[in-house]
């Protein structure tokens, strides 16, 4: 008899407990235990959520109401449910989350990077690059640099210096070492035309060679090594109202590269001209 009454007692207690949970007592109980009555964390008890799901027609099932009316906590709950496609709203939510977690103010780029990685892993990030890719990238960098410096050395030593010498000799002593049919090449007035033509040919050959190296190693130099392109690729679509921003930035950097090569050669010519005019 006592066993039965004890079992009955236990059953009654169990029923009362379940009743209490179903009336929303779990959240307040959790708050009392953890002492976080004003916590910004979600206070929805899983038991309440289960009972809410099991009773779809019940009027007591209320949506998860945050304990405080703080806008940031509302944003947090909204972010956990919604799949907003607005990138600006996503950034604001992430900033709000970062503020609530009492971390130091996150860097904008780390935010953008985390958003980009959350959206998709289409872009390779250097942080998660495999060792094989890193070795390939290092080898590719080495080959590109070697091409750049050997081209510069060849242009300076094998063409620009001898040609500038011939032009200054022609100007000073009116003597041309070339046959008469080609003597117009060493005339000072034709110097810039010959120089520019040579630069166009040299840069074209350089870029062809660069493209063959990129095709061989299957790496795009600017995409992999340029910090500006990497920064631009982290910016999500829609933030800056320019279509295909990355492509435009890559094109601009290519033009800057060509211009800097031209400027480097012109500077060499100026220095050599000065030296030869003194001798």
């Amino acid at each position: 008899m006592s066993e039965l009454s004890e079992a009955e007692k236990r059953r009654i207690l169990r029923e009362r407990r379940q009743q209490k949970f179903s009336n929303g007592g779990a959240s307040s109980r959790l708050n009392k235990i953890t002492g976080q009555a004003d916590s910004h964390l979600s206070t929805d008890s899983p038991i309440e959520m289960k009972t809410a799901r099991s009773r779809p027609n019940s009027k007591d099932t209320t949506p998860s109401i945050p304990s405080s009316s703080d806008a940031s906590s509302q944003m947090k709950t909204a972010s956990s449910d919604s799949t907003s496609n607005d990138p600006q709203l996503e950034i604001l939510k992430k900033l709000a989350n970062a503020d609530e977690s009492n971390e130091s103010t996150p860097d904008l780029f780390s935010l953008l990077r985390s958003m980009k990685s959350g959206e998709g892993d289409a872009d390779k990030s250097t942080e998660s690059m495999a060792p094989a890719d890193q070795a390939m990238l290092a080898y590719h960098d080495y080959r590109v640099n070697r091409l750049k410096y050997m081209t510069m050395l060849f242009k300076w030593v094998c063409f620009l210096f001898p040609y500038t010498y011939l032009v200054t000799r022609n100007a000073k002593f009116n003597v041309s070492c070339l046959p008469e049919s080609l003597s117009f090449l060493t005339m000072p007035s034709n110097f810039f035309m010959v120089f520019t033509s040579f630069e166009i040919v040299a840069i074209s050959v350089y870029y062809q060679r660069l493209q063959s190296i990129e095709a061989e190693n299957k790496i795009n130099t600017l995409h992999s090594t340029s910090k500006i392109v990497q920064m631009v690729s982290m910016v999500p679509e829609g933030i800056i109202p320019i279509p295909n921003l990355k492509g435009k930035v890559v094109t601009a950097l290519q033009y800057v590269d060509v211009l800097s090569t031209f400027v480097a050669d012109i500077c060499f010519v100026l220095v050599v001209l000065g030296l030869l005019m003194y001798i």
């Binding site: 640099n145 070697r146 410096y149 050395l153 400027v263 500077c267 060499f268 220095v271």
Partner: peptide, 21 residues
Amino acid sequence: GIWIWALTNVISNIESLIKFL
């Protein structure tokens, strides 16, 4: 002014070249 700019440009290019080679 232009000459010193050209000279410093050439020197830095030569430095990079020697460093690489």
